[in-house]
């Protein structure tokens, strides 16, 4: 080995060694430096609209939008997308923003987020499910559904719904919005009839509010699950199974235009 090369390598090592020590000092210093004067914000602005290529579908809402209970994991949203793909050659883009257990007040917060608004703005079709968790509240709703409570809950829900639809229409005047109504998973229980009554009214009020906005279509699902409800429910007896989602998707698909 050439002595000269060894010497050069040694000097290079010494140099990088010093650089790493500086880096280490930087790290420790930076970690304990105080907060900044103002919060960081990148000036690079997002393009106002996403580059439009094909169809964009944005799904909002709760576990139904997520597809909970569907063994295939698609949910009605996935089925609808498949249907759209069958009918068009355009590229279809889906953004599923559904969150398990989401209530209308949480959705209200969600649609106010900047990025969510930007996504809604770029959408051609908006799918929406909400309200199930407001009404049933993880089983609590079953116990006191007869009392005054339902009225209060419903009132709050309707206000939130109004806000959400307003918000969607404000950022996007063109997209068709499909708002999926509630079904009664408890129809076979003792109090099933009474619960049905509450849900029918709930759906009626929801449809009324949807009607106040252009291009918002209320899609009823109550009748789909009226007979043989257990064939269409997942083992938790609350969410639809694949067949149930398929039913909802077929109904939505029948309404689709773009």
């Amino acid at each position: 080995m050439n002595k000269h090369i060894i010497r050069v390598i040694t000097y290079i090592s010494i140099c990088v060694c010093l650089i790493w020590i500086i880096g280490l000092g930087f790290a420790v210093h930076e970690y304990y430096a105080g907060g900044p004067e103002k919060a960081p914000f990148s000036k690079a602005t997002a393009k106002k609209t996403l580059n439009k290529k094909g169809l964009t579908v944005v799904a909002l809402g709760d576990s139904l939008t997520r597809g909970t209970g569907d063994e295939t994991g698609k949910g009605y949203v996935g089925d609808v997308i498949d249907e759209i793909k069958k009918r068009t050659n355009q590229q279809v883009t889906l953004l599923n923003l559904g969150i398990n257990g989401q209530r209308s007040d949480q959705l209200k917060d969600q649609v106010q987020q900047k990025e969510v608004q930007r996504q809604i703005k770029g959408a051609d079709i908006v799918l929406l499910t909400i309200g199930g968790n407001d009404l049933f509240r993880g089983g609590q709703g079953l116990i006191d559904f007869q009392t005054q409570n339902v009225g209060i809950v419903e009132k709050r829900y309707l206000d939130n719904l109004k806000f959400v639809l307003q918000q969607i229409r404000a950022v996007n005047t063109e997209a068709n919005v499909f708002f999926i109504g509630l079904y009664n998973p408890f129809i076979n229980l003792n109090q099933g009839k009474d619960i049905s009554k509450v849900i029918r009214r709930w759906n009626y009020e929801s449809a009324e509010i949807s009607a106040a906005y252009p291009k918002v279509v209320f899609v009823p699902t109550f009748d789909l699950f009226e007979l043989k409800v257990n064939d269409y429910l997942y083992s938790d007896k609350f969410h639809p199974n694949s067949k149930g989602y398929r039913l909802i998707a077929e109904r939505v698909a029948a309404l689709l235009t773009w």
Partner: peptide, 18 residues
Amino acid sequence: VRSLPLWQFILMDFGLVW
């Protein structure tokens, strides 16, 4: 929270790795 240019962050990472 503050923002750093990436090269500085990587230099810090290198220091810690070292």
